[in-house]
Simulated scan of single mutants.
Amino acid sequence: MSPLNTDDLYRIFEKLDLNGDGLVSLDELRCLLERIGVHNTGLDELKLLVGQTSLDRLDFLFFYDAILKQNVGDQEGEESNDLESDLAKAFKVYDLNGDGVITCEELQSVLSQLGYWSDYCGWDCGIMIKRYDANSDGVLDFEEFKNMMLITNP
């Protein structure tokens, strides 16, 4: 998937900073990593990786940049079939209850958590889902989600 820009990262930082102290704790960071499919990351391991017990906004940007560079380095010489794996991880983030489909409520909830949704944004999740809901069941399965993320017509 494409790298996030600074504004995206700041919005994610604000959502992670649950107590509003201007810092993301290792526990808050671990929750994010688990949410995006990086499991079994213990606090001790994360502290070694991060080098401190919490991250301010700038440290968070540097952490993201380091992870991004590590992933690019790890993927050199590999085929780009990792796109399917990345999409599967993204799908799991949106499929909040793990039932294999994304509902309008799940889509709105995740977009809200990431700072892309507000009551005033004028978007309609139902319309967004309907556009890619090939079997008209009112939800997105993984194939429909892939079509949406890859911006293909159903």
Rank of each mutant, 00 (worst) to 15 (best):
M1A: 15
P3I: 09
P3V: 10
L4A: 14
L4C: 11
N5A: 02
T6Y: 11
T6D: 15
D8W: 01
L9I: 11
Y10R: 15
R11P: 03
R11L: 12
R11M: 13
R11C: 11
E14N: 12
K15V: 08
K15H: 12
D17L: 04
N19H: 10
N19G: 07
N19S: 11
G20R: 09
D21M: 05
G22N: 03
S25D: 05
L26H: 02
L26C: 02
L26Y: 04
D27S: 14
E28W: 01
E28Q: 03
L29A: 04
R30I: 08
R30Y: 01
R30M: 08
C31L: 12
L33Q: 00
R35P: 00
G37L: 09
V38Y: 11
N40W: 02
T41E: 03
L43F: 03
E45N: 11
E45A: 12
L46M: 05
K47H: 11
V50S: 00
G51I: 04
Q52D: 14
Q52K: 15
T53Q: 13
T53N: 13
S54T: 06
S54D: 08
L55C: 05
D56Y: 03
R57H: 07
L58K: 11
L58M: 12
L58W: 09
D59M: 07
F60E: 01
F62D: 13
F62W: 09
I67E: 09
K69R: 07
K69W: 00
N71Q: 10
V72T: 03
V72R: 04
Q75G: 06
E78T: 10
E79Y: 06
S80G: 09
S80E: 14
N81G: 04
L83N: 10
L83F: 08
E84C: 02
D86Y: 14
L87N: 10
L87V: 08
A88H: 10
A88R: 15
K89A: 15
K89D: 13
A90E: 04
F91G: 06
K92G: 13
V93H: 08
V93Y: 04
Y94M: 03
L96S: 06
L96C: 06
G98L: 04
D99E: 07
V101A: 07
I102C: 01
I102Q: 01
I102G: 03
I102F: 02
T103V: 05
T103A: 06
E106P: 07
E106N: 07
E106M: 07
L107M: 15
L107Y: 14
V110D: 09
L111D: 03
L114T: 03
G115I: 04
Y116P: 02
S118H: 02
Y120D: 13
Y120T: 12
W123Q: 12
W123T: 14
W123H: 13
C125M: 15
M128S: 07
M128F: 08
I129D: 02
K130C: 09
R131H: 06
R131K: 15
A134R: 03
S136T: 01
D137A: 01
V139G: 00
V139L: 04
V139W: 01
D141A: 02
F142R: 10
E143D: 14
